[in-house]
Design a protein around this nucleic acid. Structure first.
Lengths: 236, 236
DNA sequence: CGCCAGGTTGATTTCGCTCAAGCAATGTGG
DNA sequence: CCACATTGCTTGAGCGAAATCAACCTGGCG
C-alpha cells in the first residue's frame, strides 16, 4: 500500500507530474511502488531491461557506467530529491546503459513503464515535459563531452565545484564560498573521468595556489574570482 | 516556392514525418523553405536563437562546439541525408549550443520553429518520435562521454571507424574492410577531441602494427579481428 | 589491538599536446 | 610554364599532465 498519494508529495508542484489531472494522478499513485534503499544499494544494473522509472523522494542516486576493465564513470548530474532516474532508457525503448546506485539512504517511488506509457499516451503535455527535459539533458551532456575532450582536470574540477554551488554551497559574510561535497573523493573523480590520485594532486595544487582549501567533504573557496578566471583562462 | 512537397521527399517514409497526415504534411510543405549550402557554409552559429530545424535532403552537416581558446570539437553523429539538425535546442527552448556547418555541398529544408511546435501540438505521435530520438541521442552521448573519459585515442579511433562501417564501409572478398572516410583528418580528430598531430601518429602506429592502412580518405582494414580486440583489450 | 577502506603521497612511465619544420597537392599570378 | 603562396597532412623534439604502481597514512570498527 502506498503511504502517500502523489498529489501530496512534497515534490509534486515543481515536478513534471504537475501536468497530470486528478484521474491521472490517481492512476500514477495507484501503480507506483515506494521503496527504500540504503547507501550503496543498486536500483538497477547496466544492461537490465528498463522496467520503469524511479522518482527520488528523498536521498541521492548516481548513475555509473563501467566496462570490463574496471573503468568507471559517474554521470552528471547526480539525481537528488525531486529528480527522476531511469527514464531515458524508457523513452528510448532501450535497456539501461548504466547502473543506478543509492549514494546515500534513499526513498524512491517506482513507476512501472506501462503506467508511464499510458500517461504519456493520454496526456501529451507529459510527453512534452519529458521531451524538454531530455533535450536539456542532451545539451548538458554535449557540454560535458566537450569539456572532457578539451579542458584540463583542474578546470573541470572548477566547473564541478561551481555546479555544486547552488545546491550545496553557502556564501560567507566575508565572501568565502563554502561547499559541502555530496560525494566521496572516488566518486568526485569518477564524475569527470579521472583517477583518485590525480584528483588528490589537483586539489593539493589548488590549495597551494591559495584558491581554496579542502577538508573532508568541506571546501572553502576563498578566492572565488580566481576560480572563475580558472574556468576560462588557465589552460583552455 | 518549394519545388517538391514533403510527401514526395525521398526520405519521407523512414523519417519522423511519416506520422503526419495529409493535412499536416501540407502544412509542413507549405512552411518549409528549401536552401542550398556549399561545403563550408554555416547554417547557424553557436549562441544563435533557434529559428527552426533543418532537414538534410542531400549532403552532410556537422555540428561544432568551440570555445574562446580555439578549441573545437565535432559532435557525433554527422548528420547525413534524411537526418535533422537543430532540433535539440528547439525542443529544449534554448539557443544553439553549437554551430552547424555544411561539410559538403548540401541541400536542406528549413522548417520554422512555430510550424514544428504546431505540428507537435496537434500530433502527439510526432512528439513521441522526437522523444525517442532524443532519448537515443542522449544515450549515445553518454557513451561518448564515457569513452573520451576512459579510452585511449587509439581505441576511440577504432570505435569511430567501426561507426563508419555501415554507411561508408564495404567488405572485400578477401575479408578486407574498406572505409571511405567522410571527413578530413582535422575533422576526424575533432570528432573525438584530439589534435590532428596525435591522430596522425596514432594512424601511423596502427599501420605499423599491420592492422590497417590509410591513404587519403581511404582506409583498408586488413585485420578486422585485431581491430575488434583493440576495442576491449588493448588498453581499456 | 589489528584490520580495512578511503584517501594521500611519491617515483616513474606513458600519452598526448605544443611548437616547429617539412612535404605533397593545389592554386595563382606573372 | 614556371616561381610562389596556400592548404592539409605528416613528422620530429621536447614538455607537461595524468596514469600507474607502490607505499603509507588515517579513522572507523571488529
Amino acid at each position: 500500500m502506498t503511504k502517500n498519494d502523489c498529489h501530496n508529495c512534497e515534490h509534486f508542484p515543481p515536478s513534471d507530474w504537475g501536468v497530470l489531472d486528478a484521474n491521472e494522478l490517481q492512476e500514477l499513485g495507484h501503480n507506483k511502488v515506494c521503496q527504500t534503499y540504503q547507501a550503496g544499494d543498486v536500483l538497477f544494473h547496466q544492461g537490465d531491461e528498463c522496467q520503469g522509472l524511479y522518482c527520488i523522494v528523498d536521498g541521492m542516486v548516481g548513475v555509473r557506467k563501467s566496462d570490463a576493465n574496471g573503468n568507471c564513470v559517474l554521470l552528471r548530474p547526480l539525481v537528488v530529491s525531486g529528480g527522476i532516474v531511469g527514464f531515458r532508457p524508457l523513452c528510448a525503448g532501450e535497456n539501461h546503459r548504466g547502473s543506478a546506485e543509492a549514494l546515500r539512504d534513499t526513498k524512491v517511488c517506482f513507476v512501472p513503464a506501462s503506467t508511464v506509457q499510458n500517461l504519456m499516451q493520454n496526456n501529451p503535455q507529459l510527453t512534452r515535459c519529458f521531451l524538454t527535459r531530455l533535450a536539456k539533458a542532451l545539451g548538458d551532456e554535449e557540454e560535458d563531452f566537450f569539456e572532457t575532450a578539451v579542458l584540463s582536470v583542474r578546470t573541470r574540477l572548477f566547473h564541478i565545484l561551481l555546479g555544486f554551488k547552488d545546491r550545496y554551497g553557502r556564501l560567507d559574510e566575508d565572501g568565502t564560498l563554502h561547499i559541502d561535497l555530496p560525494v566521496s573523493r572516488q566518486d568526485l573523480a569518477a564524475m569527470f573521468g579521472v583517477r583518485p590520485e590525480s584528483l588528490s594532486r589537483t586539489v593539493r595544487r589548488i590549495e597551494q595556489d591559495g584558491i581554496a582549501s579542502f577538508s573532508g567533504h568541506n571546501v572553502q573557496i576563498h578566492d572565488v574570482d580566481r576560480l572563475f578566471e580558472g574556468l576560462y583562462s588557465h589552460n583552455e
